[in-house]
């Protein structure tokens, strides 16, 4: 661990600016000096925004929340890749040290027909919530929580379910899919339940309603390009998509 660095670089940013969800947007060039290489990508944008505010300009709107890679709020297409060039890294966990002095960085919003742009880099990803609402839950009578070990669960299934549940719903899989398909996201949400006994009860309806909602929202079709898996900041595997396909086939009978 090298500790903090005093190194500062200059970046040439090309950032998508769009007034609101209806207006046409355009790429705007910004030259940003004295960017500490220890800064995260979002801190770098904060730095730019502070300057824009000082200059009386409208700051760049972008999504962010936890800034520690677990909430799924941050997005951004950075140099043509969702969450930037690093594998299994969210935008907030991407650091300026990954870029060179005087490098040009193109920053734009995630794009899909089912997504909208609220403003600048802020993306409307409520379509993902709609998919979850369609069936990404289990129905139980509320009351005292049962003992955690009351239902025996195979260790392997528990692990696979947890792996699927790591999905933070950031939408990078959709953004990087050449077809703007939401298969990896939906399959992770289907899988986390399908692998557990509590989820099996509604498994049939769940996969049907969630896939139906996904299709209705205008997401594309999966052609097994694997860009979703490659770009997923949480390392969700396409074996989840195979599992969803199995669940769907099972639901036909």
């Amino acid at each position: 661990m090298g500790g903090l660095s005093d190194k500062k670089i200059t970046l040439n940013l090309k950032i998508w600016r769009q007034q609101d969800g209806i207006a046409d947007g355009k790429m705007v060039d910004y030259r940003l000096n004295d960017v500490k290489t220890d800064m995260s990508f979002l801190e770098m944008l904060d730095l730019l925004n502070e300057r824009l505010i000082r200059e009386g300009e409208d700051p760049i709107a972008f999504d962010h929340d936890c800034r520690e890679g677990i909430c799924g709020a941050c997005s951004l297409m950075i140099n043509g890749q969702a969450h930037g060039p690093e594998a299994e890294t969210t935008t907030c966990q991407l650091h300026v040290r990954k870029f060179k002095d005087e490098q040009t960085i193109v920053v734009g919003p995630f794009r899909a027909e089912a997504f909208g742009v609220h403003k600048d880099l802020m993306v409307d990803r409520s379509a993902l919530d709609a998919i979850v609402m369609a069936g990404g839950f289990i129905t139980v009578a509320t009351g005292n929580a049962p003992d955690a070990n009351a239902i025996a669960i195979r260790k392997e299934n528990a692990e696979l379910s947890m792996d699927a549940a790591q999905c933070i719903g950031c939408g990078a899989c959709i953004a990087s899919c050449p077809n703007a398909a939401a298969m990896l996201f939906t399959s992770a949400k289907v899988s986390q339940f399908a692998l557990l006994p509590q989820g099996k009860i509604e498994a049939r309806e769940r996969v049907r309603t969630m896939v139906e909602k996904m299709d209705d929202l205008g997401f594309g079709n999966c052609t097994n390009e694997q860009e979703c898996e490659a770009t997923c900041p949480k390392g969700i595997k396409i074996t989840n998509i195979a599992r969803m396909n199995r669940e769907f086939i099972k639901s036909l009978f």
């Binding site: 140099n79 734009g108 050449p178 077809n179 205008g218 860009e227 490659a230």
Partner: peptide
């Protein structure tokens, strides 16, 4: 259908090199 699933094309799109 896949073409129309993203009518607003990316200004820049680069493959990860780890997938497709």
């Amino acid at each position: 259908q896949n073409y129309t699933a993203r009518s607003h094309k990316y200004y820049l799109k680069v493959k990860t090199g780890r997938g497709s």
